[in-house]
Design a protein around this nucleic acid. Structure first.
Lengths: 193, 193
DNA sequence: TGCATTTCTTATTCTATATCAATGCGCGGC
DNA sequence: GCCGCGCATTGATATAGAATAAGAAATGCA
């Protein structure tokens, strides 16, 4: 249950077994069935979630543009709406399970208390956020200056596994293109291959 | 010289005067004249920079698409290519002064040593990165689902000062649109006002 | 096993924005 | 004080990708 969490933290920082025990206690396990929501628009993001098994998507349900997928989360990843989680303001996003999913939740207060109990974790989360920041900045650059096809090819390169795991129209939405365009790109790309 | 740094850190965490003295010593001041580069493509980002005065831009010099502006930095902001700074890989970006500018530089080693000397700073940088992550994610969403005009209006709302301070074609590049399109948007927006 | 729902593909039309080209103008340098 | 050049504006044309509309596959579920 907590094995993946243990492993992921220890990839970035070293932790005694006692320290990890304290961590563990701050989390509450939760399972979500396919399509179930972990967070809905206008609610407050009370938890930061660590994904154990399954897959989730965070999306914005835009007025006109239908839904746009902001990020996916797979086992070993963290997900929440950071803004809402930090400020306590209602979120504008939704987080939904794409499969039956198991997560570990930690509330804001428990999260902050945990930093006092295990100060090393500040470093862990700093590193995590730094990586997320880098990845998001890359996606931004890709979105600003690549064509639809280039975006798709970059994604395949960076995350080949995603393609298998989530439906094509969500990939399209994640790339900021329509499902039709993605379909055409795939067709064309398969000829040139 | 170090006043703004002091103030900015103390906005997020509390620090004794001794602790701040230790911080100070890790930084090296540097001035850049207008157009001078702080970082150039293919070099390694050896420093994290805190902006004291002036303004900078980070941009990618794309093959076909000319230059695209990734971010600006004004007094009180931090700037570097995080990926290169963290990994030691050569950067694909450039950082250039838009005006005569004064910065405080800290090298990677000094930065990491500083966390051991003043552990509270882990928290400061965690918070900083969290905010950057949130801001970049917002920009990504804006870039994925807003029209050129909406992007421009959002920017005016979020950072009215930017418009005065940097040339219009750089704003266009930052928004991912052409200078011509921005010019037309501005013209039209001024009528409807 | 068969129907319903979701997902993917294909074709056609339409639109926002890019691209190309020309003109104007303000500012810094000499 | 004039010149030159980068920057902004404006107009004409081109184009990538959106919107719309169907139909074909695939998947799940009763």
């Amino acid at each position: 249950m907590y094995e993946l969490l243990n492993q992921k933290i220890r990839e970035k920082i070293s932790l005694t077994d006692d320290e990890f025990q304290i961590c563990k206690q701050a989390f509450v396990p939760k399972t979500l069935h396919k399509h179930q929501y972990l967070l809905q628009q206008d609610d407050v993001a009370r938890y930061l979630a660590f994904v154990n098994e399954g897959a989730l998507r965070m999306f914005a349900s835009g007025e006109k543009n239908g839904e746009i997928v902001i990020q996916f989360a797979f086992p070993g990843w963290w997900i929440t709406d950071n803004f809402s989680f930090l400020t306590g303001e209602p979120t504008v996003y939704n987080i939904q399970a794409l499969e039956n999913t198991s997560v570990l939740l930690i509330g804001k207060q428990a999260w902050e208390d945990l930093f006092d109990k295990v100060p090393k974790l500040e470093r862990y989360f700093r590193i995590l956020l730094q990586n997320n920041y880098i990845a998001t900045q890359r996606r931004l650059v890709s979105s600003l200056c690549q064509t639809a096809e280039e975006k798709y090819l970059s994604l395949i390169k960076a995350q080949p596994d995603i393609i298998q795991r989530v439906p094509q129209h969500m990939i399209a939405s994640y790339l900021g293109i329509t499902p039709e365009t993605l379909s055409r790109i795939r067709k064309q790309a398969s000829y040139t291959r």
